[in-house]
């Protein structure tokens, strides 16, 4: 169980982790499709690059974001003793 005085640092840490996970991801998904047309001139695996990044790239980045968030947040929980009983 977590100590009372740990609550504030824990929540500060969690807030920063939330921002670190979401802000780059949201910026990327909004900006990337807008540049798809110019990226389409290049190719990757035969795909036009703009389409490839929009479809496969964002999917891979979304999965990576969730996986890294799960691991980082679990480490934060443990560091502050806020994790579930094991």
């Amino acid at each position: 169980m977590m100590e009372r005085k740990e609550r504030k640092p824990y929540w500060r840490h969690t807030k920063w982790q939330m921002l670190a996970s979401l802000v780059p991801f949201l910026v990327l998904i909004i900006v990337l499709p807008l540049y798809a047309e110019s990226l389409n001139a290049k190719r990757f695996l035969g795909f036009p690059l703009g389409y490839f990044l929009g479809a496969h790239g964002i999917a891979a980045i979304a999965i990576f974001t969730v996986v890294s968030f799960v691991n980082r947040q679990d480490a934060i929980d443990r560091w502050h003793g806020a994790h579930e009983d094991t």
């Binding site: 939330m18 964002i58 979304a62 974001t65």
Partner: peptide, 14 residues
Amino acid sequence: TIGGLAGFVVMSVM
């Protein structure tokens, strides 16, 4: 599709 993927990311974090 991008909206759906981002939905899961936001849901899991927030």
